[in-house]
Design a protein around this nucleic acid. Structure first.
Lengths: 153, 153
DNA sequence: TCGTTTTGGTTGAGCGTTCAACTATTACGG
DNA sequence: CCGTAATAGTTGAACGCTCAACCAAAACGA
């Protein structure tokens, strides 16, 4: 059955394109900065961050995948690469012989510690410095709404 | 000289992560839908859209790169691929022998026309349906502010 | 308990992006 | 003019992601 398309009106069109441009420009900029200054893409930085925030700096692959919002395949490839960089190690899981545990190494923690200040400064400069406190609050609510909406359905 | 890092406070942290999660989930979802239903990634869809909106459906490569916010290299690769798909053609530029003009073919226009309804519906479902009119307005202002901020400096 | 299903994770091919290097043409400065 | 610089665009290698196929182990059901 064919249904009438609910096209975007002019305002929606503009909103959508502005959002697209902004979010791409922002992530492109931060990604490039991180690659230049710390030699890692943002996705890998996020993995290190998540590992660093957890007791013993170790997480099951699947939990890490959920936390970083990535597919198991993606995480598997990423951790393989981080392992050759010496930033992450893989341990076997004692309670499930299928499982793997990703562990942040000391080198990995050091790399993260070196990368963090520059990156955080970038986030502040490129995002928060541009917005009013009210806008920051609006952005948080909008983003949380979207996350709920997108992960719900 | 070392400068004290302006770290993110708890609220900013949450805002930043929510935004990151939301924008990634949204673009991942739309990209996947578009790939599944129309056989093209969103970046290529955007190229076709921009070409379709312009007189004679032809644009200089560099203008097209600016409009889509992509590097020349990226666009060059993308157009090469779109050309083998038969959706775009390359003409020589009469006023500048270095230049190339990307032209949307009839097949390309047809592919776009076939892809558009589903994609627009997706944008509505995944973005606009989740937000109040006030939030949509806020999002537009925030995005426009960010675009100006990011492309300015 | 045994066969089936589900879950955890990996693998390899294909694709899109980036980066740096490169060619060809045009614009600029003296 | 002529030489240098800037611009337009392409290319190939490296890399990260996706998708589908796959293996192994655990959970389930009769």
């Amino acid at each position: 059955m064919t249904v009438m398309t609910r096209w975007l009106d002019h305002d929606e069109q503009q909103t959508w394109r502005a959002f697209l441009t902004a979010s791409r420009a922002l992530s492109d900029t931060l990604d490039r900065e991180l690659q230049r200054d710390a030699g890692m893409p943002h996705a890998y930085y996020e993995i290190l961050v998540r590992l660093s925030e957890v007791p013993d700096r170790r997480l099951r692959m699947s939990e890490l995948a959920d936390l970083t919002g990535s597919s198991r395949s993606r995480l598997s490839h990423a951790v393989a690469r981080l392992e050759t960089a010496g930033w992450v190690r893989r341990d076997e899981c004692p309670t499930d012989r299928r499982g793997q545990i990703a562990v942040l190494t000391d080198d990995g923690f050091a790399a993260l510690a070196a990368a963090a200040p520059g990156h955080v400064e970038g986030v502040r400069r490129h995002l928060f410095d541009a917005l009013s406190p009210a806008q920051v609050d609006q952005l948080r609510r909008i983003s949380e709404t979207l996350v709920a909406h997108l992960t719900g359905s």
